[in-house]
Computed example of a mutant assay.
Amino acid sequence: MKSEVVRLFQTLPHDCGYYADRSAQNLVIDPSAPNLAAIYGLALTRGFRRAGGHVYHPHCAQCRACVPCRVPAAAFVPNRSQRRCLARNADLAVADVPAAYTAEYFHLYRRYLDARHADGGMDHPAPDDFARFLYTHWSPTRFLELRKDGRLLGVAVTDVCAEGLSAVYTFYDPAETARGLGTFAILQQLAWARRAGLAHLYLGYWIAGHPKMDYKRLYRPLQVVRGGQWVDLADDAETAVAED
C-alpha cells in the first residue's frame, strides 16, 4: 500500500489565547493537502483539532499546558450536576442538521460572541467569519440544534468522523445562561456518540486550573495524551473536582 506524506507547518509565535503573558505556536497540517479530509479523523487520534480549514496542534516552545482530551462515550457516567442539567433542559428539542450559514444561526452566533468575548478579538463578527471559523468545504460537520418551542437557543458545531465526534464549538443565547447550555450540548454529543456506536467525544484541549478550560475534567472518565499515549486522567487530589 502506498504511504501518504503529510506536510506539517509551524506557525510563527503569536499571542496566547489563554495566558496573556505567553506566546504560542501551532503545528498545522498542510491546508492544501488533497487528502486532508481523509486524514482528519486519524489526526484527531493524534491530538490535533480543527478550526475552520486548519487542522492544528499546539507546539509552544516553553509551554505544554494544552493537553488533548477525549471522553470514552460508552463509559461516561454523568455526575449529579450534569444530571440536573439534563433535567433542566428536558423541554428542549435536539436535532443534528447539515452545517450551513443562515441568518438565524449568525444572529445567535454574533450575540454570543459579543456577550462572551467582548473586546477579545472575536466580538462583532462578520458573516464570512461564521463559516471561516466553524466549518469548511471538506469537513464532516453537523450542527446540533437546541430549540425551545421552535426558538433557537444553541448550536453545537460537531465533526462526525469514524474515530468519534469532535466538539468543535458551541454558541448559545447569552440570556439563557441558567440552563447550562454548554454542558447540555456536551451531554447531547456524548449521547449522540453512543447511539452512533462511536468510541469517543473529542473535547479539544484541557488546561489544568484554567478558568475557561479546566471544566473538561468534569466529564469522566476523561482521557488525555501523556507521552504520546491516551491515558485516563488520574482522579487524585490534583485533578479531582467536587460535584456541586
Rank of each mutant, 00 (worst) to 15 (best):
G228V: 03
A37F: 04
L146C: 01
S3N: 07
Y105W: 09
A178R: 12
R111F: 04
A240H: 13
A208Q: 14
L190T: 05
V5S: 12
H124P: 00
Q223N: 14
P127Y: 12
A61G: 00
G53A: 13
G41R: 04
F76M: 03
T177E: 12
P31Y: 06
A118P: 01
V168L: 01
V231R: 14
R110E: 15
F48D: 01
E4I: 13
V241N: 06
E4C: 06
D119T: 10
L201A: 10
R142P: 03
R80Q: 14
P34M: 10
A75M: 05
M1A: 09
W206D: 09
P58M: 07
G209V: 12
H54Q: 09
H54R: 07
V157G: 01
P13E: 11
H117C: 06
R151E: 15
V94E: 11
L153Y: 00
C161P: 07
V67H: 06
T102A: 05
D232W: 07
G227S: 08
L198Q: 12
L146I: 01
C69R: 12
V71L: 05
A191I: 04
A196C: 14
T183M: 06
F184G: 05
D149G: 02
F184V: 01
M1H: 05
E4A: 13
H54W: 08
R64G: 05
A240V: 01
P13H: 02
T141S: 12
W138L: 03
R83P: 04
D244M: 00
V5Q: 15
P31E: 08
D129P: 07
R88I: 04
G17T: 08
C85M: 05
L92T: 13
A193H: 07
D149L: 03
Q189K: 03
C66N: 08
Y109V: 04
V94G: 02
Q229T: 00
F9D: 11
P34H: 15
H59P: 00
Y109I: 03
S32M: 13
R147G: 00
F133R: 11
V77T: 15
R132F: 04
P174T: 11
A126E: 11
D232R: 08
V157W: 01
R194I: 02
F48G: 03
L165H: 08
A126S: 11
E4T: 15
I39C: 12
A87T: 09
D159M: 07
A74P: 00
R111N: 13
L108G: 06
L153S: 09
A175H: 07
D128A: 15
I39D: 09
R217F: 07
V77I: 15
V67D: 11
A237I: 02
S23H: 09
Y135V: 06
A20S: 14
H107R: 14
N79D: 15
G47Y: 02
K148T: 07
A20E: 15
P125S: 14
V231P: 08
A126C: 07
C69W: 14
P31Q: 12
A38W: 10
G154P: 00
G120P: 00
P78D: 05
F76C: 02
E4Y: 14
A191W: 02
R217M: 05
A93Q: 15
D119Q: 15
Y135A: 05
P72M: 06
E145R: 03
G164M: 13
P211G: 09
